[in-house]
Design a protein around this nucleic acid. Structure first.
Lengths: 171, 171
DNA sequence: CGCAAACCTTTGACATTTCAAATGTCGCTC
DNA sequence: GAGCGACATTTGAAATGTCAAAGGTTTGCG
């Protein structure tokens, strides 16, 4: 089914109203997904090359950096949107690298609290600065006004999605 | 040189500054990421519950559905943004489920072409219809005009990101 | 007190992810 | 027609991801 060189591309797509009508949401989703993948891959590559860290580790440390007292694993799971079982292994690896510490509080022995070590804080703050710069660079060609608008409108999407989940809660 | 032409310049600066200033790109990224994760998880859950399929499998089948003649694994890798090694295992599992067929063309024995089976086409077309509906539902509270706008503006983001990668090409 | 329900984390089985290195084929040159 | 370089896929190690089931701990109620 090789396509002949004739202009089979529909001209009417150019017209606003003739957007093929349906599937607007589907198209938005596909574009969001591919864009997010693209950015993730770039950040992953740089985190690896420049800091020897992975993206999920970075995400987890970001949460701990905001809460210097540490967080329970369940809290970490919610905030990073990573499953419980996954957090266990993630924290294990970070602990063996000396970046995170695990403590069981006196009051409740069911609980494990994870907390950044000094080494972890130092490393994270370097990574965070670089990370922010990478994003600014990658989005350099986008008008700041558009960036703001996107931030707002994607918020609307997130909120709509949250209200139509089959069985969970939200932000 | 620094001649204030009009008051609008100052206003723009004020507006930007009032946006909590820095890190606009970072905040956009975090919101895109969490929203994408949220939607992905929902789709994943439904694909699993209703069709016993995974999201990467769905993505891969979507590409094959568009190209009934089949695609080489390398092409699949590019289109799904999944690494080569990953495609191998993905196709392996789909083949053992009877959804995909692997063929080596006569001309070039380096190549493997994957192609949907009849069973695969039937299953995918059911999944695709459901998938589209899920997205429409999830985004039901978002004004269609905003959806269009987002589609366009995220395109701009994607294009900017593509032009600032450290070592790869693009869409 | 005693025990069942609720809570938090871990474990186990699999699927997916990345990267780098290995394998196999083809095309082209000498 | 032997071999080198380019191309296509597979393999292997390590990390991440899901889900469901199992482990301890606490709480609350009879």
């Amino acid at each position: 089914m090789a396509e002949p060189e004739s202009a089979t591309v529909d001209l009417e797509i150019i017209v606003q109203g003739a957007q093929e009508g349906k599937k607007l949401e589907l198209r938005l989703w596909l574009r969001m997904l591919s864009t997010t993948k693209l950015i993730s891959q770039e950040i992953r590559r740089r985190l690896r090359n420049e800091f020897g860290a992975t993206l999920p580790q970075f995400d987890l440390m970001a949460q701990l950096y905001r809460e210097r007292e540490g967080l329970r694993l369940g809290e970490l799971s919610k905030r990073t949107m990573v499953t419980n079982g996954n957090v266990t292994g993630l924290v294990e690896r970070l602990e063996s690298d000396g970046l995170v510490l695990r403590v069981t509080p006196d009051g409740d022995r069911r609980v494990t609290v994870a907390k950044l070590t000094a080494k972890g804080e130092t490393l994270f703050s370097a990574m965070a600065a670089a990370h922010e710069g990478w994003l600014r660079d990658m989005m350099a060609d986008v008008d700041p006004a558009i960036v703001s608008e996107l931030w707002r409108d994607i918020g609307a999407v997130k909120s709509s999605v949250s209200n139509h989940l089959s069985g969970a809660d939200f932000d």
